[in-house]
Amino acid sequence: MILAVAGGKGGVGKSTVSLNLAAELDAVAVDADLGMADLPESRGPDLHDVLAGRADPVEAVHEGAPVDLLPCGRTLAGARAADPAALVDAVDAVAGAYGTVVVDCPAGMTADAGLPLFAADRCALVALPDAFAVADLVRTRELARELDAGLSRVVLNRAGRDPPTDRVERALGAPVTAVPESRVVARAQRAGKPVSTVAPESTAAERFRELADAVTAGPKAPRGRRR
């Protein structure tokens, strides 16, 4: 299964949701934000190398950390040398070797956000519970629909005491998981760790577990339908 974690805006917590979901699903997290990567860095080949044809996607996966990770380079030169279209085959290859892949998408509506959705079977959309959440989510859902990544879950991240779950659910037509604002999540993310390894009993960890169960439920999407 390839799951894309998308959302129209930057800073809403796509990388946090990606890392935690990958931990819960025992999946490989792929940092597909070629220009502004957020998931932890590591030594050795990264996604820029893979997309420039310098490294094999499966060999570029770093195991051993709390989450298996295909990291992304941080340089503009690397982003420029990378062929964004090659992401689709790279993600497919990793999914072939590891089974489940969570792709952390960049913000925006351009091809770098579109290609992971094109590669994915399904997607989860992330937004903050603010006044713009619904509009952002609807736009991203349209893009995901057109690229054949069905929406399996909406995540309202850093939700306060009373998140507008019902309103978003009605507008998007998809179930919503609210992840509470929590210092432990932010601290774990800064350390490049999923919150379940730091505070397994926390509400946030519990919500990520629910989210993982929810996105894996339902009929398995057919794979390789376009190639």
Binding site: A79, A111, L115
Partner: peptide, 9 residues
């Protein structure tokens, strides 16, 4: 996808 959405490089 690149043709429709533009090259992000």
């Amino acid at each position: 996808v690149l043709r429709e959405l533009g090259d992000p490089s």
